[in-house]
Nucleic acid binder design. Structure first.
Lengths: 191, 191
DNA sequence: TCTTTTACCTAACGTTCGTTAGTATACTAA
DNA sequence: TTAGTATACTAACGAACGTTAGGTAAAAGA
């Protein structure tokens, strides 16, 4: 319990509390109680409640999604996306809660204007990245753009199901859904 | 301003505040201030802050989704779903905020165990309803169940985009995405 | 050695919260 | 007319909040 840096322990417990009770529903006192330290120690490592919340989003969340986005593409597109989503089932509790908290801010359900602005910036990069990944497969499809959009939308719901609603999505179900959106795409690879 | 029942005015302002600041971030005082009445008047009409929140979800939200679900199916399936989603763009501010608040509870981002339980019950009816609607069109498709699931997932993200993130989704974009998921379905009607 | 810094604490500050006690005014029924 | 009820208020309660003042004890640096 005590072998870990107190600063990190505080952040871990804070992630749990912000997740369970939201920003306003979380109290510094309850974090201190669960960490097992005194109340002012929170202020020794973080200048305020807001800074603690901000660090979780600005560092932990964006580090996590950057890590996620750097997964190497291998095999077919359907394979790639299926494994990407399926992998979320096995996120650590901490990572899952950080992800969940980030999505909450992304959906403007928590956080302040500044954090929401960062999310908007981040969101702008999503569609182009997937357009790039899918480009080799769909460049001769008529509704190219719509397919990218539909896939991204589908991915979003599946991510929410796993990360936010804490559901387990079986690999075959994920594959089926992605294949439906990308049907006719895979074949073009060999044409 | 004063022609409306105070009880209703309070609920309207509460919906705004719960939406903007969440349950814990909303104060009875700020609601009273924006309504233009004294603080104890909130307690004259609602026994507690929690009861006020609960009524919004239990009555307003579920009434709204029931109203939404009763839309008559006409034309093609793609048409039906397109119009259903597109119509959300033109929800009144009040209805949109009630919807948004409900989704927040649905995603377990707010509300207590009891309300989340009601959401779980409600969610169980979603997939069967759409399976029923789609049945005539997909009964000869091999991946029947997966198509229903994918469509429901896609609808969920589009609803979130409009209602939660407050985006405007053009009718053609909605139609394109639905058509991608249901491709090959429409044709079977005439086979 | 002595001084400074680091890591921790108890206790309290002022503010705001949800909620209620107590009272006034206006309409309604008798 | 008068008793009662519905609608409104001012003022305050105790509790909990974010935050800080001020201190201690040990380790590190000089």
């Amino acid at each position: 319990m005590e072998e870990k840096d107190l600063r990190i322990r505080i952040k871990e417990v804070a992630v749990e509390h912000f997740n369970r009770n939201g920003y306003h529903g979380t109290t510094i006192r309850s974090i201190a109680r669960d960490v097992g330290c005194s109340l002012p120690m929170i202020y020794y490592y973080y200048s305020s409640k807001k800074e603690l919340f901000d660090e979780i989003i600005k560092k932990e969340f964006f580090d996590l999604v950057k890590r996620q986005a750097s997964h190497v593409k291998s095999g077919s597109v359907v394979d790639f996306y299926t494994k990407f989503i399926y992998g979320l089932n096995h996120l650590s509790d901490y990572d899952r809660q950080v992800y969940r908290l980030g999505i909450k801010v992304y959906l403007t359900f928590d956080g302040d204007e500044e954090l929401m602005g960062l999310m908007d910036e981040w969101e702008k990069g999503i569609m182009p990245r997937h357009r790039e990944i899918l480009k080799p497969y769909i460049q001769n499809t008529p509704n190219e753009e719509a397919v990218v959009r539909t896939l991204v939308h589908l991915l979003e719901t599946m991510i929410e199901n796993i990360v936010v609603k804490n559901r387990y999505l079986p690999e075959e179900e994920i594959r089926e859904e992605i294949a439906i959106v990308l049907q006719g795409i895979e074949r073009d690879r060999f044409s």
